[in-house]
Design a protein around this nucleic acid. Sequence first.
DNA 1: CTGAAAGCGCTTACAG
DNA 2: CTGAAAGCGCTTACAG
Lengths: 349, 349
Amino acid sequence: VPLMSEKSTVAERRCTIADVALAACVSVPTVSKVLNNQNGVAKATRERVQQVIVELGYVSSRAARSLRNGQTGVVDLVVLRLDSPYIFEIIAGVEEGLSRAGLRMALTVTHDKLQRERRWLETVIDRATDGAILVLAHGQSDRLDALAQHGVPFVVVDHRGGLGAQVPSVGATNWAGARSATEYLLSLGHRRIALISGPPSYECSHDREEGYRAALQAAGLPVHPAYIRPGEFVYDTGLVETTALLDLPEPPTAVFAGSDLQAMGVYAAARARGLLVPHDLSVVGFDDVPMSATANPPLTTVRQPLADMGLVATSMLLRLLNDEPLDSMGMVLPTSLVYRDSCAPPREG
Amino acid sequence: VPLMSEKSTVAERRCTIADVALAACVSVPTVSKVLNNQNGVAKATRERVQQVIVELGYVSSRAARSLRNGQTGVVDLVVLRLDSPYIFEIIAGVEEGLSRAGLRMALTVTHDKLQRERRWLETVIDRATDGAILVLAHGQSDRLDALAQHGVPFVVVDHRGGLGAQVPSVGATNWAGARSATEYLLSLGHRRIALISGPPSYECSHDREEGYRAALQAAGLPVHPAYIRPGEFVYDTGLVETTALLDLPEPPTAVFAGSDLQAMGVYAAARARGLLVPHDLSVVGFDDVPMSATANPPLTTVRQPLADMGLVATSMLLRLLNDEPLDSMGMVLPTSLVYRDSCAPPREG
DNA sequence: CTGAAAGCGCTTACAG
DNA sequence: CTGAAAGCGCTTACAG
């Protein structure tokens, strides 16, 4: 019964810098100097104060410090949804970066809803935040303008497009990643390669489709429009579109999915038809979320260094916070193809 | 080029309540009253002030308010690691609950490291936080004592055991969940059912093993020690232990895994042996993380209402913050068996 | 209905 | 080396 009862009885007032000063028989500014390791305190005084600080278990109030120096020690990470492993990788990267810098991460989910976004903006603008990292923002958003207007530093991760050249951002090589995935499938002997893509409004969807087209064209192959299936970056899109693909008179022998989640949907569609991956159908994903390594079979996929993207975004933000210049407004991290067990040569020639 | 250039040139001072007062030709306290919807302001005055507030785009400073009323508007969510879908479900629940209450969520990862934990404690104790939600804390932790001592309200989700009866916590019915999963396998005709479990030091591991034993004993079946395999709640444990299990002279026909991640490892071990799930080996998981619904095949699993657990923890914390009494110090949410495609009757009778 | 005064806990010049 | 004074932006009694 110790814990909570203690808590309720010991409703003692918080120990402040004034209490320390009193106990150490010095003035408040002197304690402040000791706390902040500033010069101008006699050695003996300093030691006495330090001892009192320990004895009293004094910890300075963040709120008071914030009010004085205008820094809150918290950075906002703003995401649309908390529904995919993709976002969690980025979160982990940002948390790590912020933690190293001694900053806290406030996580906000907007659900792409105006109301939540407004409320978030209020929070940010009331100076509860030193800066912000926005995932999947689009350039048209009022948000960005509002942030800029209020002088809140921010950087965008994996933007949806339409960003001004002056907006700090970090992304990945979507085009190159899609191209190399397609080339790999080609090298295995596939000629009928379908693409399941993301929302057409996203720049990354567009870039990946271009990479896919480029690989086919370089191989002298036509791009079959029925093989290109846009959708959302979710499981259902993978399932539905692959089912439709398999109903084609000439079904593809390989599917390149725009996300690993979609790729799991491709697996499901294949299973429903009694098709074995990779024997009957080859599959490549995009992202390389942790789940892909443990999928059945393990998924060959284009790795986006999501955690690193979060780390880089954090570094950029830290420079902004320190008024240091950025080496480049846009940072693009390389993707890489991770070979696992979901691809094989096509069955029939 | 508009965004960032604006930002750097418009280095104007922040608009304060004094600016509003000046512009509206009233005193600062009057503006404060308008802001907080308090009585004692003439209608005309109120309207004038409100208009100025809008014109100037005034937003009150959180730091100043915090210093006055002692509330920061942020709650800490403390987790060990950011490495499993399990934790993300809880995070989503807590975020939702906090967001509804108009509070922000600061996410901290301790990595189970003392240093990080210390640093986190400093943060919490410097009053940068109104309260905390701890996931997978254990009773022995200094943390809990430190929090209680400093009067920081907190609640523990899915504790590892050893918690005092006076510590607010939320968990799930581990025993019942394990029992019903085992019963289900039994009802399918399985007699050789293995259990892959979590770390023996975790209370939940213990409870689940007891549930498993209870089901076997109720069916008049012996508990085969070689069929009980403790480990970590990760993929590798599932893979390694299942491989060992399949090497037994009498291998099990069904595996009940302590987590869905482990279950994916079971899938992999089966695949490596050319065994088909569920035809050759039945598998039940624990958690029901989103991945399990899209696994290949979709995983039958014991659902823990993880997001709801986060939601409930948040509600409890909010009551604590408002000095309201808790209905119960411990809240235990029901698990439920989710039937999917990873179980079938055993092949041989 | 309105505003002068005090204070939340700290830090930063500045005077001694 | 030490401390009195002012101020960060707000809110809460309190007097008029």
